[in-house]
């Protein structure tokens, strides 16, 4: 029995270490997956500020998540918070206030895709990213009320209607791009099961989605950026 007890001392130690070290290593090694829930884009210089937290503080202080050096922005100016039913902007006792689409807010205000938010004289466009939908699950299956492609060069908006939309150099394409490197039938968007799907047909110039080349039909998410050569379009949808 003494020999068995001697062995069990080592076995016990080994078993406990196996569990604790595995769990501790996992806890230390694992990091929460970083998601971009939304994007703030400075209208003056197109600088992008991704919103990656449920609560994102905005201000002049370096402790804020998004820092503006603009003197009209208070040290702690605002918070943009993701709640179950969407995004809200909170004024955190700023001196110059917050304006959403030109209106000064007096209490927390729900903000929508494409809203223009002014913190002092810092004016930004607000775009909801696709990953925010994961946390607003009730919206995922709702029908698409309006889907658009916005040309980022000139802000020209193409409304996606019907069951398919063609993009290419060919005259009569729904979205016609007159550039030599764009194929006559370059890409097509089709509405399938309440989702817009993009498919590339060109073998000359790649079509990219958020910087990645499309090799097969891919579902579009709100805020996705489609690039064909020098042309870039942002996909927006309202459900």
């Amino acid at each position: 029995m003494e020999n068995l007890e001697f062995i069990l001392r080592y076995v016990l130690c080994f078993l406990a270490i196996a569990v604790i070290f595995n769990c501790v290593l996992s806890l230390i090694r694992l990091r929460p997956e970083k998601k971009t829930y939304a994007l703030l884009v400075d209208v003056t210089n197109d600088e992008q500020f991704p919103i990656t937290c449920y609560e994102t503080s905005i201000g002049r202080s370096k402790s804020c998540d998004i820092v503006f050096s603009n003197m009209t922005v208070s040290r702690s100016h605002a918070v943009i918070a993701l709640r179950k039913d969407g995004f809200y902007v909170f004024d955190t006792d700023s001196k110059t206030g917050i304006h959403v689409n030109g209106e000064k807010i007096e209490k927390p205000k729900k903000i929508f895709n494409g809203d223009v938010i002014a913190f002092g004289t810092a004016v930004l466009n607000f775009y909801i990213g696709s990953e925010a939908d994961d946390d607003m699950s009730h919206k995922k299956d709702a029908p698409i009320a309006r889907a658009t492609l916005t040309n980022l060069a000139d802000d020209n908006v193409f409304r996606l209607e019907g069951d398919f939309v063609t993009i290419g150099r060919r005259k009569g394409s729904n979205i016609e791009i007159s550039a030599p490197y764009v194929s006559r039938e370059h890409a097509e968007l089709t509405l399938q099961k309440n989702r817009w799907i993009i498919e590339n047909f060109s073998s000359v110039t790649a079509t990219t989605l958020n910087g990645e080349v499309i090799y097969s039909p891919t579902a579009l998410e709100n805020g996705d950026i489609i690039e064909i050569g020098d042309f870039a379009f942002r996909y927006n949808e309202n459900r």
């Binding site: 406990a16 270490i17 501790v24 806890l27 230390i28 990656t52």
Partner: peptide, 24 residues
Amino acid sequence: IMAGAILLSYVALLVYSIRHAKYA
């Protein structure tokens, strides 16, 4: 060895909390 591992687990819980705090 086991005593040290037990202490390590308290540290790991704090590290875990700090890691997730920003994305809470």
